[in-house]
Simulated assay, not measured.
Amino acid sequence: MLTAEPVGRVLDYRAPEGGCAEGAFVVVPLGPRLVMGVVWGPGEGGFDLARLRAVNRVLDVAPMRAELRSFLLRAADYTLTPPPAMLRLATRSPGLGEAPGPRRVYRLAGTEPARMTEARARVLDALQSFGGAALTLSELAAAAEVTTSVVKGLVKIGAVLEEEAPRDLPYPRLDPSLPGKELSGDQAVGAERLRAAVRAAAMAQRC
C-alpha cells in the first residue's frame, strides 16, 4: 500500500473482506489517523500477520491504472521525489473519497410548446443542434443565448426534460481500430506529408 504520507515506503495491510484489486483507492489506519492510499501490489510479508492492521474501506471510485502507477514511479526516480509525494500530486482532488454527486441535465422531450416564442425556439434549436445530447442549465442557456428562466419555463410545460445524471463519467478507452474522420483536401495533403516525414525518419534510423 502506498499512501501520500511522508513515510518513505510502501506498507503492508490486511485486505478487507472480499479483497481489493491493485490500483484500488482505500482508506487505511496510519498511527492514530485514517489516510488515503492506493493498493500498489502484493504485500511483502516477512512478519507476524497478527500484527497487520486492516484496510478500513475501499473507495467507490475507479482504480488507478497500472500505466499511471508506473509513470509516477518513473517520475519519482527522474525528479528524485519520494513516491508518496508523487502520489499526493496525483490524488490532490477535493472529495476524491466521496461518491460522485449527480447533476441536473436537460434534453428534448419531443413535444413543442403550445405558444412558441423566439427564445423558446432558440432553446429547442440548441438542443437539436447537439444531436440529442443532454446539457446543463448554464450550457443550454449559453448555447441558446437566453436566460435560465426560459429553459425552466420549457421544463414546466413539458417541452424540455430535466433529469439527473452522474457528474463524472469515465472516459471511454481509445480504440485505434475505429475509422478516422474524413479529411478535406488540404488536410489530406498535410496528413500525407506528416506520414511521409515519419516514414523517412524511421528509414534514417535504420540506416
Rank of each mutant, 00 (worst) to 15 (best):
E5H: 03
V10D: 02
A15F: 04
A15W: 02
P16I: 07
E17V: 12
G19E: 14
C20D: 06
G23V: 04
V26P: 00
V28E: 09
P29K: 09
P29E: 08
P32I: 10
P32R: 13
L34I: 05
V35R: 04
V38Y: 01
G43E: 10
G45P: 02
D48Y: 06
N56H: 15
R57E: 14
R57L: 11
V61H: 08
V61Q: 14
A62M: 10
M64T: 12
A76I: 01
D77M: 11
T79F: 03
L80T: 08
T81V: 06
P83V: 10
L87K: 01
L87M: 07
L89C: 08
A90D: 03
A90H: 03
R92D: 15
S93A: 11
A99I: 03
V105Y: 00
Y106A: 08
A109H: 06
A109C: 05
A109F: 02
A114M: 10
A114N: 08
T117P: 04
R120L: 00
A121T: 13
S129K: 09
F130L: 04
S138F: 08
A142Y: 00
A144H: 06
I157D: 15
L161N: 09
L161I: 13
P166I: 06
L174I: 04
L178S: 12
P179A: 05
P179Y: 01
G180W: 03
E192A: 15
R195C: 10
A197R: 14
A204Y: 11
R206Q: 15
